[in-house]
Amino acid sequence: MTLRDDFQPIWKLLLKWLWLSFVVFVLMAPVFYTMYISFNKLGFGAKIYTFTFQWYINVFSDKQLLTALGWTMILAGITLPIVIPFGLLSAKFYKKSHNKVWIVFVLLSPLFVPADILGSALLVFFKNLNKIFTFLSDHTGLYFLETWFDLGIMTAVIGLIVYTLPYVFVVIMITMARYRPEQTEAARDLGATAWRAFWEIEFPQIRAGVFSACAFVVILTFNEYTRTSLLKGGFDTFTSVLISQMLNTGMSEESYAMASIVSLVAIIIVAVILISTSISKEKLEKQTRRINEPAIK
């Protein structure tokens, strides 16, 4: 989308930017307000504003919250190395396939199922799977199978994979769309193995997309409440702790501080992704322009 048109009056352009800024402001105003009150010593609703970092200090002394943060990071850490290769392979398959619509439909369908329905469906599925594995362990003597599908990290990770894979697929697919497959063929022709052609030729060109997908997975792991809390078997992930604290005590000033930290980190990650993507897009457009322009010897 471009807001520039060489023939439109300047006031129209300004109006468009003003409108865009207003929309962004309306969307982000609650977040900014939360940040604002998180620095007030007297808390929400006070008539006097006294600046303080105290609530932030309190956040980092809240053991329950820090443990929950740790769990969430562990979940993200386990999910990432599984979902990223899945997403990459799916995007590669999509690019080569002739039946693209079906692949998109299959991979994006988890997005269209409401979180609580998908979460409870997975819960029922794992409970039944657990019965089968318990039966198997009883009859084979392979007792380690018994706990495989107990609710815990593994089931939560599977739930997160189902949830994040569509996003990872879309982000990588968009970056991969610009990649010219002739380059892989050229590398293969020059003697590279399939893996080497991918690692040395394709990956450097889709790296931005892969890193963006990683960032998305981390953000989504923090965002996720329903599926993770249903499948983890314990309400001890970051978002679930934050929400339970709010439900028990109402929004505390520490909660405002925590929410501000998470929002800020998310905004920074998204901004970095947008900036790096637009830079690489500009680079690529420049290159494409040069290729398409009549060549001068």
Partner: peptide, 16 residues
């Protein structure tokens, strides 16, 4: 392709 005694120049510019 990499085991054949051939090299290929691709349509367009398949430079890295």
């Amino acid at each position: 392709p990499d085991k054949r005694p051939t090299s290929m120049v691709f349509q367009g510019f398949a430079l890295f």
